[in-house]
């Protein structure tokens, strides 16, 4: 049976990609998180509203980087994920 990603998992995937690059553009995030452009835009807007990421204008391009809150969220997610796996549960 196909297992769908939870919203939290998608958020964590987006944040992980941005964290690994330091700063990432929408195309890199879209491919990395395996999302359609439409869904990615919705997620990025929501994450910015929540203060987990911030957008940076670089000429005619936009890049995203994690805020302090985003870094804390990602670290907590990874700890909770490791704890969940220790009990045989996939997040």
């Amino acid at each position: 049976m196909k297992r769908y990603r939870s919203r939290l998992r998608i958020v964590a995937d987006i944040l992980s990609i941005i964290a690994s690059e330091g700063r990432a553009g929408p195309t890199r995030i879209m491919y990395g998180a395996n999302l359609s452009h439409e869904r990615l835009v919705k997620y990025l807007k929501r994450l910015e509203e929540l203060g987990l990421i911030k957008s940076l204008k670089m000429g005619d391009r936009t890049a995203y980087e994690l805020t302090e809150k985003g870094l804390d969220f990602l670290a907590e997610f990874r700890r909770i994920e490791a704890f969940s796996k220790a009990f045989g549960v996939e997040v």
């Binding site: 220790a86 009990f87 045989g88």
Partner: peptide
């Protein structure tokens, strides 16, 4: 139950639990 889960995931933390 945990043994069966470990057989499919091979996770060290799960082995400790």
């Amino acid at each position: 139950h945990l043994s069966m889960l470990l057989a499919s995931s091979r996770n060290l933390d799960l082995a400790l639990v």
